[in-house]
Design a protein around this nucleic acid. Structure first.
Length: 598
DNA sequence: ATAGGGTTAG
């Protein structure tokens, strides 16, 4: 008996299954398995959301082949955790597993992260299946997916006949465990051992390249794939390519690949959108998303929204962000930790800390990411004390902070003027939590010390840094010198900054401002002259206003200033009435924009 | 009759 047997194809399968003896049909991908026998209904197995249900009938115990089919159905359906239940039931009924059973169990254990690969491995040894090539490959993969890379390598080295699946499994294991460079070395090893990579190998290697953002390697692999003859667009490969170009910062190349793929799935779209976000082209990210919504058949998922919300955060597009939030609720998307974190982050960066906090409270489970987003959000909004309180709550609920958490914490101290606390948090990073302070942590500390007037201490912190301080660190100290009118130290830093970045106009402007402030008019003038004479570039200013959920982007210097102004006037006039509805002052918008253009 | 490796997100 079957539930949901509506399609014609399915019905014919159903009818052909209604023979007196039990049978299995397992060749149609959409219908993972179907077991029917005459007799009394014994057990029902729902094979997942879009899969038909399966009811086992009859008194006879299913044999191992039937059980393997049930396991497969559960794993490719949405109930991999039930496969262990059926496995133990099978054992209770005295059915002995065969060599086909173990790859299935291993896959289930990867899917649900049960961490019981070692137990399954032990059983394969016990039953003598541990040198079966399918079992060996499945072991490499399951150990890799379960974070036990050392075990994966041990099995890998035991294998004498490694095929492309063995290699792909170990390469993937490395990528998934944060050892992308090793995975690329293994790929070269695979090539020199004469095993041909196939499409799956290429997809995995591309994901490794994406994490190290090595375009030239990526282009080689892309070429390697193309050189192998006719291009069969596989969506896995296509999305891996899009993602690789996107992560390397080449979203136009990502777009080219995207345009070539005939059947794009949600991953292709999401990877492309994320590419635009990574390149700070948030308006384009939004428009790709809108094309996806209105001109494609593909439905966005949680990952898609995470990226689009990132675009909203960049633009401060609160209304757009709220719409996306509503969309997520409306489409029954799961408020998982990634989506929750990006909503918290979006609301905070768009200025609505209360909505941010509402999401935070609504999240059923929280790991370090949502906590960090909330701590950082509160700090950005000037709630130093609340931010630090939340940090303590996080610690007492047993969540370990990471490097990003500490940037939030130090930022909170900076805003609250809590120098001693900040200092002790900073030193606790490596001594208590084993996290080495990175550039941004030094930046926060310099800012914290500098703002409170401890210029000497800030300077010696920079000079004692184990890593080469980047210009921004000096910039923070320069800012502090300006606040506390230490023009002598400021001048030294200003000159140093110009030496570091002679083509950045802002660096000359800083020193010019310092000279003006200390009334050294001639030096100020010569600095401005120097700045013009070098023909230095300026990062183009960009701003957005959002009216009735429509985001308008203004780029300084992409048009002549006059044409640009005209544009703004046109838009502002058109929107004048709507702005009034939104209680937004036209003058304020205008002022913001013209300030931005100077 | 049934078995092994894959792409996106904080």
């Amino acid at each position: 008996m079957l539930v949901g047997a509506s399609s014609r194809r399915f019905r014919s399968l159903y009818e052909s299954a209604l023979s007196p003896r039990s049978r299995i049909i397992n060749h149609v991908k959409k219908i993972p398995c179907l077991f029917i026998s005459n007799g009394v209904a014994q057990d029902a197995v729902s094979l997942g959301k879009n899969q038909p249900s399966l009811i086992l009938e009859g008194n006879e115990t299913p044999n191992i082949v039937v059980y393997n089919s049930i396991l497969r159905g559960l794993i490719i359906g949405s109930r991999p955790e039930s496969s262990f239940f059926y496995f133990s039931k099978m054992r209770r009924q005295g059915v002995t597993p065969d060599k086909h059973t173990y790859p299935l169990l291993l896959k289930a254990s990867s899917k649900i992260k049960s961490g019981n690969q070692t137990q399954i491995h032990a059983q394969t040894v016990k039953f003598g299946f541990d040198s079966d090539p399918f079992v060996e490959n499945a072991l490499v993969s399951a150990y890799g997916n379960g974070g036990e890379l050392d075990f994966a390598f041990r099995v890998f080295y035991e294998i004498t006949e490694r095929d492309s699946i063995t290699w792909t499994a170990i390469i993937d294991g490395c990528v998934k465990n944060g050892r992308a460079l090793d995975s690329l070395k293994l790929f070269l090893g695979m090539r020199s051992s004469g095993v041909e990579p196939d499409g799956v190998t290429i997809a995995v290697v591309l994901s490794a390249i994406a994490t190290v953002a090595d375009v030239s390697f990526g282009k080689c692999v892309h070429g390697l794939y193309l050189a192998r003859g006719k291009v069969n667009w596989d969506v896995y490969l296509g999305s891996a390519l899009i993602d690789m170009y996107a992560k390397c910062g080449l979203c136009d190349d990502a777009r080219k690949v995207f345009d070539e793929i005939p059947h794009r799935n949600v991953v292709c779209w999401s990877a492309l959108i994320e590419g635009y976000v990574q390149s700070s082209r948030s308006k384009e990210a939004l428009s790709v998303f809108q094309n996806m919504l209105f001109k494609s058949e593909v439905k966005p998922n949680e990952a898609t929204l995470v990226s689009v919300l990132g675009a909203c955060s960049q633009m401060g597009a609160l209304e757009q962000g709220r719409l996306l939030h509503a969309y997520a609720v409306e489409s029954n998307l799961e408020l998982n930790m990634s989506l929750g974190t990006s909503l918290i982050d979006m609301y905070a960066k768009c200025g609505s800390i209360s909505e941010s906090f509402m999401i935070f409270k609504a999240l059923p489970r929280k790991d370090v990411y949502p906590w960090t987003a909330m701590i950082t959000g509160l700090a950005m909004h000037g709630h130093g004390k609340r931010s630090l309180d939340l940090f303590s709550t996080m610690l007492s609920s047993g969540v370990q902070p990471n490097a990003v958490t500490f940037t939030g914490v130090l930022c909170a101290c900076s805003h609250g003027g809590l120098v001693d606390q900040g200092r002790s948090y900073f030193y606790s990073m490596s001594s208590v939590y084993g996290i080495e302070p990175k550039m941004e942590h030094y930046g926060c500390m310099v800012d914290l010390l500098g703002r409170s007037g401890r210029l000497e201490e800030a300077l010696s912190l920079i000079e004692g840094m184990p890593i080469e301080p980047e210009p921004g660190i000096w910039g923070a100290l320069f800012g502090a010198c300006m606040i506390h009118k230490d023009f002598e130290l400021g001048e030294r830093i200003g000159k140093h900054l110009i030496k570091l970045q002679p083509r950045r106009s802002g660096r000359y402007a800083l020193l010019a401002n310092l000279y003006s402030m200390s009334q050294k008019w001639e030096e100020a003038a010569s600095m401005r002259k120097l700045m013009k004479g070098k023909g230095v570039e300026k990062t183009p200013g960009c701003s957005w206003i959002e009216v009735n959920s429509i985001v308008h982007e203004f780029n300084a210097f992409d048009l002549s200033i006059n044409a640009h102004l005209k544009d703004i006037y046109l838009v502002l006039n058109r929107l004048n009435s709507q702005l009034k509805v939104l209680n937004c002052e036209l003058d304020t918008c205008h002022l913001l924009i013209s300030l931005d253009m100077q």
